[in-house]
Every structure is written in structure tokens, then in C-alpha cells.
């Protein structure tokens, strides 16, 4: 069964699943925002319409080679990170096992940065000043949220002596508990860092349309914008599934996965709807206060 064809079809199925779920979550988010603002809001399949329209648009903008590579880098990074995420736990549906190895948690922490870097390269080539400001803001914010996130991951790895996601999932299954209960401080630090990872309000300083004209993507139209949107949807699924795998014991089937990821997804969405936008230095200060404190607590909890 372990043929290359089998692996490839599994990978394709995973990408399709991630794309669909991410897109629907985006649509549900737009609906939630609309309902909270007392509007009817777009239908929840609106993001699909947007993406299909964007892919059917002409795209004839040329600023240089890197401009064409940037969106490709972004979606490559998203798909590569997705390949290292175990979608279901235990002997779940065999298609979604993908390319796990021991040590993939460390690899993922690096891989999740790669997409932003690719986008930064592409945006830099366009020469749009708004893109440059947006990229600077994005990298600064990344420095903010990566530190508590990495601290919480390091705490987990040190506590359970494993650097593999499947290892962490197996531990949770054996001990019949979730890591969000056995190391609560790591969970709090990681969730606070996740608020920044999603780039939703109040941490939407990168894409703020009123300030920097949508930042890094301001010079990307048509198919490139469609690529960026697809990449964002897949990456949202990656982040949510990683958190479910690490902290909530993974999911035995797809329905459980959807329920758990959606519950987790509501945290950044609902927190974002009622919050105005931070300034750059406020966002970084935010991450270097309580999330960092909880990150240190998590490491202490793991050591003693």
C-alpha cells in the first residue's frame, strides 16, 4: 500500500480538504462579522466565488521575476507545511497520514515562517511603498508572536521528550487527556500567539486596507491574488489542525476535526470582531507581555 501513487493521492485529498475547509471558514467568518454588525452578510460560499473569479481574471502585471515567484512561494510553503500535519490521529483515515517523521514539530515551526518570507520577497520586487511598509510590519509582528509560540512548543517537547506531532498525539491517547489540560500555560501562550498568526483584527496591521492599501498584496491582482487567498485558506487549516493535534488530542474522524478546529477558529474571529486595530508597536508589546509570561510559565511547568 505504501506506493508513491498512494502518497500522492493522499496529498491531493489533503490539499482539497484543507482548501475547502479553509474557504468555508473564511466565508463563515465574513458571515459572523456581518451578523455582529447587524448586516445580512454574504453567503458562506462567497469566498469560493471570489477565488473562481480571481482565477478567471486576466493577469498581466510584470515587475520582475520575484514578483511572479512570491505568490508561488507562499502557496508552496502552505502546502509543504500541510504535508507534515497529521490530519487525523491513531489509525484514522489512512489517506491523511502524509509525511510525518520524528522531529517534524521543529521543522514546522520553521516552515510556517517561510510563507511570509516568500511573500516579502515578492512584495519587495513590486516596488510599491505600501508593500514595503506592510512587509516590515508583518516581519515585526512575526518577531512578536513567534517567541511565545516557540516557547510553548519547546515546553511541550521538553515535557514529553518527543519532537514529533504524532508522538504528542499518541501520548495524549495513552494518558487519555489533552495537553491543554496537562500543560495549560503552554496552551494559553500558544492561543495568544495564534491571534497574531491569523492576521485578523486587532493584529491586521499587515493588510490594513485603510492604512497601507492591503500591504504586501497591493500590487498583486487577478490570479496572484487568487493564489494568495488559496494559500491563506490552506494555511488557516494548517494552523488550526496543528493546534488541535498538539493540544486537543487530534481528531478520530473528519466531523470531530471540523468541530474542534471550528471551536478553535472562533477565538481569533470573535476576538477580532470586537477589537479595533493595534498599531505596530502596540501589537509587539502585546505579544511580549502576557503571552511571553505564559510561555515562561509553561517552560517552568515542564521542567518541574
Amino acid at each position: 500500500m505504501n506506493t508513491i501513487l498512494f502518497q500522492l493521492s493522499g496529498a491531493l485529498a489533503t490539499i482539497l480538504l484543507a482548501f475547502t475547509v479553509g474557504m468555508f471558514y473564511g466565508g463563515i467568518r465574513r458571515k459572523i462579522i456581518a451578523r455582529i454588525q447587524n448586516r445580512v452578510g454574504p453567503p458562506i460560499y462567497q469566498n469560493f466565488l471570489d477565488v473562481i473569479k480571481l482565477y478567471s481574471k486576466d493577469t498581466s502585471i510584470h515587475h520582475g521575476a520575484m514578483q511572479h515567484m512570491g505568490p508561488v512561494f507562499a502557496i508552496t510553503a502552505s502546502i509543504t507545511s500541510l504535508m507534515f500535519i497529521p490530519v487525523l490521529n491513531g489509525d484514522g483515515w489512512f489517506w491523511f497520514k502524509n509525511l510525518n517523521f520524528s522531529g517534524d514539530l521543529i521543522f514546522l515551526v520553521y516552515m510556517m515562517v517561510f510563507g511570509s518570507l516568500g511573500m516579502a520577497l515578492g512584495a519587495g520586487q513590486t516596488g510599491n511603498p505600501n508593500s514595503a511598509i506592510g512587509v516590515t510590519r508583518g516581519l515585526s509582528q512575526m518577531v512578536g508572536y513567534e517567541i511565545p509560540f516557540v516557547m510553548s512548543m519547546v515546553a511541550l517537547m521538553a515535557q514529553f521528550h518527543t519532537t514529533s506531532i504524532t508522538g504528542l498525539m499518541n501520548i495524549q491517547m495513552q494518558e487519555n487527556t489533552w495537553l491543554m489540560f496537562s500543560n495549560p500555560f503552554a496552551f494559553i501562550a500558544a492561543v495568544l500567539a495564534m491571534l497574531g498568526m491569523f492576521h485578523y483584527s486587532p493584529f491586521d496591521i499587515v493588510h490594513a486596507p485603510a492604512e497601507v492599501a492591503s500591504g504586501p498584496v497591493s500590487e498583486f491582482g487577478g490570479k496572484y491574488l487568487g493564489l494568495m487567498m488559496s494559500s491563506g485558506s490552506i494555511f488557516a487549516f494548517v494552523k488550526l489542525t496543528l493546534f488541535v493535534d498538539v493540544f486537543m488530542g487530534g481528531a478520530a474522524n473528519l466531523i470531530e476535526l471540523v468541530i474542534k478546529t471550528f471551536a478553535l477558529y472562533l477565538i481569533p474571529v470573535l476576538y477580532g470582531v470586537v477589537s479595533p486595530r493595534y498599531r505596530t508597536e502596540q501589537a509587539i508589546t502585546y505579544f511580549w507581555k502576557w503571552p511571553l509570561f505564559f510561555g515562561i510559565l509553561a517552560i517552568l511547568w515542564a521542567s518541574f
Binding site: R39, S214, E219, G221
Partner: peptide, 22 residues
């Protein structure tokens, strides 16, 4: 665009730059 008339239900939303706009 906001609560009272809500053009987003028709799929109309703001674009930030001409490159993204239809």
C-alpha cells in the same frame, strides 16, 4: 456598504488597489 444597506450581501466589497479591483 455598512449595516443599513449592506452591499456585501450582493458580493460587492471594497478593494484597496486598482490591481485587485473589478
Amino acid at each position: 456598504l455598512t449595516s443599513r444597506y449592506d452591499a456585501e450581501r450582493l458580493g460587492v466589497r471594497g478593494a484597496a488597489t486598482p490591481r485587485q479591483a473589478d
